[in-house]
Every structure is written in C-alpha cells, then in structure tokens.
Design a protein around this nucleic acid. Sequence first.
DNA 1: GTGGTCTAGACCACC
DNA 2: GTGGTCTAGACCACT
Lengths: 121, 121, 121, 121
Amino acid sequence: MIVLNPTDSRPLYEQITEKLKELIIGGFLREEDKFPSVRELAQSLAINPNTIQKAYKQLEGEGYIIARPAKGYFVKSVEKANPERIEQLKGQLSDICDELHYLGVHKQEITRIIDSCYQKK
Amino acid sequence: MIVLNPTDSRPLYEQITEKLKELIIGGFLREEDKFPSVRELAQSLAINPNTIQKAYKQLEGEGYIIARPAKGYFVKSVEKANPERIEQLKGQLSDICDELHYLGVHKQEITRIIDSCYQKK
Amino acid sequence: MIVLNPTDSRPLYEQITEKLKELIIGGFLREEDKFPSVRELAQSLAINPNTIQKAYKQLEGEGYIIARPAKGYFVKSVEKANPERIEQLKGQLSDICDELHYLGVHKQEITRIIDSCYQKK
Amino acid sequence: MIVLNPTDSRPLYEQITEKLKELIIGGFLREEDKFPSVRELAQSLAINPNTIQKAYKQLEGEGYIIARPAKGYFVKSVEKANPERIEQLKGQLSDICDELHYLGVHKQEITRIIDSCYQKK
DNA sequence: GTGGTCTAGACCACC
DNA sequence: GTGGTCTAGACCACT
C-alpha cells in the first residue's frame, strides 16, 4: 500500500502523510473508507507507531480524515473538508503565481499546467 | 518594514527570506537597490546578525540578490535569476492544483486568481 | 583522514569541503556511504561543529551529498548531481588552458594530464 | 584601458589583476612593455593607490611582471615566468579533470575545449 | 562600516 | 544519537 523511501531527506511522518493524501486525492480511497489502525500500519512499515500517529493527526488537521475513537480513522466527506485548507492553498497559489510572474513566466504557461491538472480525471 | 512571528513554526531566517522576497517581487525594491546591512537589519529586528546573514544567503542562492563585500547586498537583475527555481515553482503549482481540484474548487476560480496575479502590474 | 592547514588563506570550511570532495571523486566514499556526524568530525578536527556544518552544506549545495536529519549525511548518486557545476568547471578549465597556452606549455602536455585523469579508474 | 565593474561581487584588486593578466596573455602587452605607474592608474580609475599596488604585487607573485624600483612595473619575459605557476595550474587542471570525469563528462568533450583554447591564436 | 568566517554553547525535531 | 536553528561575541579583508 505504501512504500517508504529511507533515502529521502524528509521525515518519515511527512512521507506517509503525503502518500496517504495522494491515495485520497487520486480517488483510491473514498469517503468513509477506513484506514489501517495505527499499530497495524506501523508494524507493516516496520516503524514506530508514534510516527504513524503523527501522520494521521496531520491529515486530520488538514481535514482529510476523521478520528472515530475506538473505531479508527476514516476518509472524510469532501464537502465537510476543512475550508481553511482551501483558503491556505489559494494563498499559496497566489504567492507562486506572483513569483512566476516576476520571473518572466507567461500566463499562458501557467494555464497550460492548470489545464493538465483538471484533465487528469 | 518586517514583522516576525516568533510563534511561527518556521525558522526566523525563512520568515525573513519570504518577507524580503515579497518586497522584491512586489516591486518595492528594484534592480540594484541596496538592502539594509546585516547588522542594521539584525538590530532593527532585535535578532542575531547571523540569522540575517543566513536569510540573505538563501535569497542569494535563489538568485534574487547578490552580495558585494564591503558594500552590501543588492537586488539582482531578473534575467540572471536561478532557472531551477522556475521548475521548482511549477512543480509546487501542479501539486496545489491537484489538491484544489480534489477539494471541489472549480477551474474557473483558479484562473481568476491567476488573472489577478498577472494584472497587478 | 583529513589534515587542516590553519595558515592557509582559504577558510577552514572550504578546505574541508575540498578534502571531502576528493574522497568522493577518488572513489573512497561511494554512493550511500555515510559521512562522520557533524559533532564527531568537529571533535576529531578540533574545530567548531558549525564549521563542519557549513562545509557539509556547501557539498550538499554542489550536489555531492545529502542530509537526512536524525540519520546523517550520505554520498549522493552522481546522476542527481548539480548540472550547473559542470558548466562552472568547464569555464575554469578554459581559463587555465588559456594561461598554460600563454606560458608556453604544449598542447601535448595538457592532453597527457587529461589522459592520466581518465585512466585512473 | 581597463574598465572596472562596480557591480561585480569580487574585490577591486582582483578584477584589476585579472584584466591586466588578460592583456598580457592576449598579447596586447608584450615583453618589456611598461605598466602605468601605481599613482597614475589609481587616478585614472579613481580608486585608492593601495588597491593598484595590491594588484601589481599579485601579478608579480605569479611571475607575470617585474618591479624595477624607481622605474616601474614591466612585463616579464615568458621564459623567465614563474615555473611554480605552471605547476600550480597543472595541479588545478588535474583536479578539474578528475571532477569532470566523476561527473560523467566524456574525455572527448574535454579535448574539444582544449583544442579551442589552442586555436585562438 | 560592510560582508565573511569562526567559536562556544544552547535548544529543538526526529528516530 | 542525528541534523537544524539561534545567540553572543570575536576577528579579518575590503572600500
């Protein structure tokens, strides 16, 4: 399910967060799907449960999953996703665009990238 | 001129880098304009000169400014900027778009943000 | 392993960078080999850890090694090295050749040096 | 005769050294040609005489010019040039070749650069 | 007075 | 234990 790259320079919990988010965004995990338990995933990846816990907490903070005590973590409905996360992303988008604009990249090239994102599925 | 947030999780030097870059991108500092000296800015922000030095060095590495020993730091010509930086930004842009797409944000709203960036000046 | 020359005009961190790079280029340290930790090398050279940190960061910037926090510094794959470094070296090569040419050194002698470099391994 | 670039990041004396060396290597100043006096050149470049003095001393150290007290600085005969300089350059050449070799650059590309140097004049 | 280097020693995040 | 950040204060080269 998840393959960690021990040669990556990023912390483990961040790699896990990213991989799990990709699974959700890519549609491989849908609304209400259950995540493996912290202990289970920790064992299958042969790492410390604390690291998994941290990854799950981060995803929960960004509004992608929800913890149901004594049941586990579940994919949250997109509609109920964290609205702050959208605003955060929009801000980042704006900053990146400003910088690309300053660096002389044409608007046409930006829209080309966006088009390719929105044609993926 | 610059306001630091000591409760921010990002390191001080990175906050400074970001703020200074905004000044350049926003056009408030133009080519060949001089930056405050390392000691001067350190004093006005009440932090250690080494931290300013590190922030300036990062901006220099990204191709935005240049150090002239015994003279100061100056805004670099855009043409001489680091080309790798552009590729890095394009990758980030693509990731953000994917996530916004998943979160149900319409392409129309993305292009609106981009348009506003490219109309600023 | 490394011998520093405190009377050298070049900064300590640069001498260290050079020596370590020679170890990589010479094939004594191969891909994924671990470097001594910042503190360890600092102690064995009897200098400040910050100076080692700076040397390692420079090597990382040139694409020769990679930092993995909480793990250490490791030799990077050659393929992922910094392409700008090659252009920089070519320019230096050209300058040196011009000067050797003026000083009356024959092309034959230059090619002899190059041959010996390319026969090392 | 010489144009200084105040926007260059290198110290002035080094720019001057380089420019003068280029004039010698390029054949514009030949054996026994006299250099402008320290004061004269300092005035024409509108900089401190100490800076010129430092540049001349460096060229003298590398064996390109010779000081004749009360007469001035003169271009030295190539045959009498500093033999240590040649060895120094050969060492640098060897180091650069080793690094280019490690980075995967083919010998053919190196010899191409050398050929172009030796065809200049 | 400017940037560049270096030291000594501290605290934090990650594993 | 590892690397990463930050402070306080020092000295040097260059203009």
